[in-house]
Design a binder for these strands. Structure first.
Lengths: 177, 177
DNA sequence: CTCCAGGTATACCGACCGGTCTCGTCGAGA
DNA sequence: TCTCGACGAGACCGGTCGGTATACCTGGAG
């Protein structure tokens, strides 16, 4: 799992799962991309299912680390939005990896718990930052809407708009232009 | 396409694509569920890709018809939310079929245009109902966030909360319980 | 009567699926 | 020196993928 080969497998699996979808990507393709045989892949992860779980866990860990780093030097709600915005530079226009995975995986798949935990963590972080559960719920709603829209609009427009709304502007005030 | 067999194929394809994901469902399974041979399926639709497009088009048409019906007897923004809420009774906890499809399909897939058109239509309808593009954008954001959350939370809680926010309540006022 | 659309049944295609297996190699630690 | 874990090469498994082909049946319209 911590071996160099295991690392390469996880990296390639992450890239491929995110880019093409979990179901659409085969273990043979992952192994080949990692310069590894299927045997090594199965020695390291045991099953495709476990590899999927590891992929989402890794994705959460990386994203969370970046969020905490940014929050450390500039605490506040809009740093959360900024992290999504910055992340979208290499997350491309495909949208949130967890939303994408949630759309493909059955709800009782072991990896689905990782998705739920990730989203819960984000919501809880918003509550920690605002000290207001109600407001956290609202901001979380904006966030999810914005990243969902990025998936089919292909731009960060909605995300930037949502950040503007979150920046304490009252519900109805315009922010555009 | 309009033949009885074609209809049954489309119905079964819709149910299976939505429930298990587009990539995960094979044409053989669809044909079997429709009580039809693969040849008939290919005579009617030509390819899996075209069947996917037809599935999303049909889904849009059905949903749109229901929305207009409801709007006719009770115009207003919250009827849009109510339609999602009512729809979720047979859409189950899996979330928006268009968001699910968008997560699986490459952005240049012919069916992706149907997804974009559907979402655009919803946004435009909100603009028509409010007469305010800015407010429509905001409501659309709430809507997308709520249906996205339904996908991994498995409840309509976020949708009901969003309807509360949309019912002109100012951003920060609580609505829970 | 004839023709044809709309079917059924079934075999087939090459490619790929997730997963297992054997065999061999290589380098580091006891 | 010997062993053991990490890995490569590659064959193999049963099954499914999207898609095509051949042959046959049937009911209704010309």
């Amino acid at each position: 799992m911590t071996t160099p080969a295991g690392q390469r497998i996880l990296e390639q699996a992450s890239a491929l799962f995110y880019a093409h979808g979990i179901t659409a990507v085969g273990v043979a393709g992952i192994a080949e991309a990692a310069g590894v045989t299927k045997k090594t892949l199965y020695d390291c992860f045991g099953s495709k299912s476990a590899l999927i779980t590891a992929y989402l866990q890794r994705r959460h860990n990386q994203w969370w680390a970046e969020l905490q780093e940014r929050l450390a030097e500039r605490p506040g709600v809009d740093t959360v939005f900024d992290t999504y915005l910055a992340h979208s530079q290499f997350d491309t226009e495909l949208g949130c990896g967890f939303q994408r995975a949630a759309a493909e995986l059955p709800h009782d798949h072991p990896a689905f718990a990782v998705i739920r935990a990730h989203k819960q963590a984000v919501r809880d972080e918003l509550e920690r930052l605002t000290g207001d559960p109600e407001r956290a719920d609202f901001l979380f709603l904006l966030l999810e809407g914005a990243v969902a829209r990025r998936a089919f609009e292909g731009t960060t427009e909605a995300l930037e708009y949502a950040r503007g709304v979150a920046a304490d502007r009252p519900t109805s005030a315009p922010t555009a232009d």
